[in-house]
């Protein structure tokens, strides 16, 4: 095997899949051939991509975070209830949302790292509880709109931007979020140690790594990413009670498609980003083709299995 081929193998295959999907989307619809069209695709994909990155921290350290979807719902409900449509309260609501997120992350982390409850069960518990809290707080139907300046992040599009024409605010949020998370994962000791912790927590602990604290932090990061995604989603589409439903599985799917290995020790932010983009591009393409909606779920299932099978096959080569 030549060296060129070998280096080609190292490229995350998700990127290739994404490029193919994107090409198909552009071919299907003239809208997406413009920079503005592509940016609007990014705007809509932003929540899933951010979630997938946040989820990847937990996955790489060996856990799962099933509570992220519920947390999105709680954030949207909280923003609606705190602001009650009043723009003056937006900053309070944003601060409160991140505070709630951090608290949920810490609770998850403590249950897993201190209580030794397997994270799939622990976060299943918090999924139920967080959703329940959101419903209790709102009485089942949140009163109040999200004020325009809160929806700004998810919905607003700058017009008449040079070169690209229209530029969604959400894309800026997306880029900043990815930058922070990529730096955490790849540019710090923290990120490098997470991989070791995910691979062998006992070895990491005996090498002096703060295993519990870092594991806990992964849940906090995932929760903060969920809050960001929640603010974007609420901004994009407004208040509803089931806004976050199902996002936890989408986030895990995206990460797996991006080559993050369940039970830890392997994965990258690049993969997580392209996993999220691929998943969203796939939905968009199926939408454009006019594929019957229920079957899209089935296609997602097949893609998911194929991605995991592929990475299992690559993994065995080591």
């Amino acid at each position: 095997m030549t060296r060129g081929l070998a280096s080609l193998r190292r490229i995350n295959p998700t990127i290739l899949v994404f490029v193919v999907l994107l090409a198909a989307i552009c071919w299907m619809s003239p809208l997406y051939r413009t920079p503005a069209g592509l940016l609007s695709l990014l705007q809509r994909a932003a929540p899933v991509v951010i979630l997938s990155c946040g989820q990847s921290f937990v996955l790489i350290a060996g856990g799962f975070d099933l509570a992220s979807g519920s947390l999105i719902t709680l954030v949207v409900v909280a923003c609606a209830l705190i602001t009650g449509g009043d723009a003056g309260w937006t900053w309070v609501a944003l601060l409160a949302s991140y505070g709630i997120g951090a608290a949920v992350g810490v609770v998850n982390g403590v249950i897993v790292a201190r209580g030794k409850v397997p994270s799939i069960i622990a976060t299943l518990g918090t999924l139920l509880s967080v959703k329940g809290i959101a419903m209790m707080w709102s009485g089942g139907a949140p009163g109040g709109y999200l004020p325009a300046n809160l929806r700004f992040f998810g919905r607003y599009v700058w017009r008449h931007v040079p070169l690209v024409g229209r530029f969604p605010v959400a894309v800026v949020v997306l880029i900043i979020s990815i930058a922070i998370m990529a730096w955490l994962m790849h540019g710090t000791n923290f990120g490098r140690l997470l991989l070791m912790i995910g691979d062998n927590p006992r070895a990491a602990e005996l090498a002096g790594a703060p295993v519990r604290r870092f594991r806990m932090l992964t849940f906090v990061i995932s929760a903060l990413a969920s809050v960001t995604a929640g603010i974007l989603l609420g901004g994009f589409s407004g208040v509803s009670v089931d806004v976050g439903t199902g996002y936890e599985l989408q986030a895990i799917s995206a990460a797996v498609i991006g080559g993050v290995v369940l039970l830890g020790g392997q994965g990258s932010m690049l993969g997580a980003v392209f996993g999220g983009l691929t998943l969203y591009a796939l939905f968009t393409l199926l939408n454009l083709v006019g594929f019957p909606e229920p079957m899209r779920v089935a296609v997602q299932g097949i893609i998911l299995i194929a991605a995991a099978a592929l990475s299992a096959r690559r993994g065995r080569r080591i």
Binding site: V261, V297, Q300, G301, L304, A308
Partner: peptide, 21 residues
Amino acid sequence: KVSPLIATLGVGLVLQGVLTT
């Protein structure tokens, strides 16, 4: 050698799609 979580999640999604269709 697909991770069982993913394999069965995927199969579940396929079943759901087929069923609703």
